Simulated scan of single mutants.
Amino acid sequence: MNRITTAIAVLVLSTAAGCGTSRSATGGAREGNGTVTGIITLADEVGPKTGDFCAGLDVRVTPTGAPEEALGNRTVRVSRGRCSYQIANLPSGGEQLAFTVKPSPAWQCGNGATPTLAPEPQALQLKDYQTETRDFRVSCTAPSAETSTSTSTP
């Protein structure tokens, strides 16, 4: 009986010690309870809009000055013909954070233009338990006159 009691005690203590020291990949100091969420709507001329067309969308929050260190837990999915995103567990103590959105490289415009995002993503600063909503629209701008070629006849 003592062996079973000892084994249970060791198991409980090792589990408690392991849980107390776990940290996220960002070191734990960057975790918080802030969230940024929103939708990204594609204009009619932007495609494709089939399957998981949001898969290549890059939505990220990073510390200002460290764009390679993505923060939070990110979810991007297709919802009602649009892309819905949420980034949770963001630092929420008032730290200035960079917020970027890059359209999927698979998205193309029928007129050959590059898909553009409006409005431009802005930096964010979250308070405790704050959820900020930011919505965007991807549209096509006409190709510039400098890149188009034309021929004239005399």
Score class of each variant (00 low, 15 high):
Ala70Arg: 15
Ala142His: 03
Ser79Lys: 07
Asn2Thr: 14
Thr151Trp: 02
Lys127Cys: 00
Val59Ser: 05
Glu45Ala: 15
Pro63Thr: 06
Ala142Cys: 00
Asn33Thr: 15
Glu120Arg: 13
Ser14Arg: 07
Gly18Arg: 14
Phe53Gly: 07
Ala123Ile: 02
Ala70Tyr: 14
Arg134Ala: 02
Ala29Thr: 14
Gly27Thr: 08
Thr151Arg: 10
Gln86Gly: 10
Pro91Asp: 12
Val46Ile: 10
Thr15Ser: 14
Glu132Asn: 01
Asp135Ala: 11
Ala88Pro: 01
Ala55Thr: 11
Thr41Tyr: 02
Gly27Trp: 09
Ala66Asp: 15
Glu68Tyr: 05
Ala55Arg: 11
Leu57Gly: 09
Cys83Lys: 04
Phe53Tyr: 12
Thr6Gln: 07
Asp58Phe: 03
Glu146Asp: 13
Trp107Asp: 01
Ser139Val: 03
Arg23Ser: 11
Thr141Gln: 10
Lys127Ala: 13
Thr64Ala: 11
Thr26Lys: 04
Gln122Gly: 00
Ala17Lys: 03
Gly27Arg: 01
Val61Arg: 04
Gly38Glu: 12
Thr116Asp: 10
Pro119Asn: 07
Gly27Gln: 01
Cys140Arg: 04
Ser79Pro: 05
Glu132Pro: 00
Ala123Pro: 09
Thr6Ala: 11
Thr151Ser: 10
Thr75Tyr: 02
Glu69Trp: 03
Ala16Met: 11
Cys140Lys: 01
Pro143Leu: 02
Thr151Lys: 10
Thr153Glu: 08
Cys140Ile: 02
Thr116Asn: 02
Val59Leu: 06
Asp44Glu: 15
Ser92Asn: 14
Tyr85Trp: 11
Ser104Lys: 05
Ser139Met: 04
Pro143Tyr: 00
Ala145Val: 15
Gln96Met: 09
Asp128His: 06
Thr147Gln: 14
Ala29Tyr: 12
Asn73Lys: 13
Arg74Val: 13
Asp135Gly: 09
Leu124Ala: 10
Gly27Val: 06
Arg137Lys: 13
Val12Ile: 12
Asn33Trp: 00
Pro143Asn: 00
Thr141Pro: 04
Gly112Asp: 07
Ser84Phe: 08
Ser14Met: 08
Gln122Thr: 13
Lys127His: 08
Val76Asn: 03
Arg80Thr: 11
Ser24Leu: 11
Thr133Lys: 12
Glu68Ser: 13
Ser14Ala: 12
Cys109Asp: 00
Leu42Met: 10
Cys140Gln: 02
Ala29Trp: 13
Ser104Tyr: 09
Pro119Val: 06
Pro143Ser: 05
Cys54Ala: 10
Leu13Ala: 15
Gly38Tyr: 06
Ala29Pro: 09
Gly112Asn: 07
Phe99Pro: 06
Pro63Tyr: 05
Val12Asp: 04
Glu132Leu: 14
Arg74Ile: 00
Ser104Arg: 11
Ser150Arg: 13
Ala142Met: 04
Gly51Thr: 02
Glu68Phe: 13
Met1Pro: 09
Val101Ile: 09
Gly28Val: 08
Gly93Pro: 05
Ile40Asp: 09
Thr131Asn: 06
Leu13Ser: 14
Ser104Pro: 09
Gly93His: 09
Glu31Gln: 14
Val46Pro: 03
Pro105Cys: 02
Arg60Val: 12
Gln96Trp: 08
Arg23Trp: 03
Arg77Met: 02
Tyr129Val: 10
Ala123Tyr: 09
Ala9Val: 15
Leu117Gln: 04
Gln96Asn: 12
Cys19Ile: 12
Ser104Phe: 07
Asn33Pro: 00
Arg134Ser: 04
Pro121Glu: 03
Leu71Ser: 01
Lys102Ala: 13
Thr114Asn: 11
Ala9Met: 07
Asp135His: 12
Leu11Ser: 10
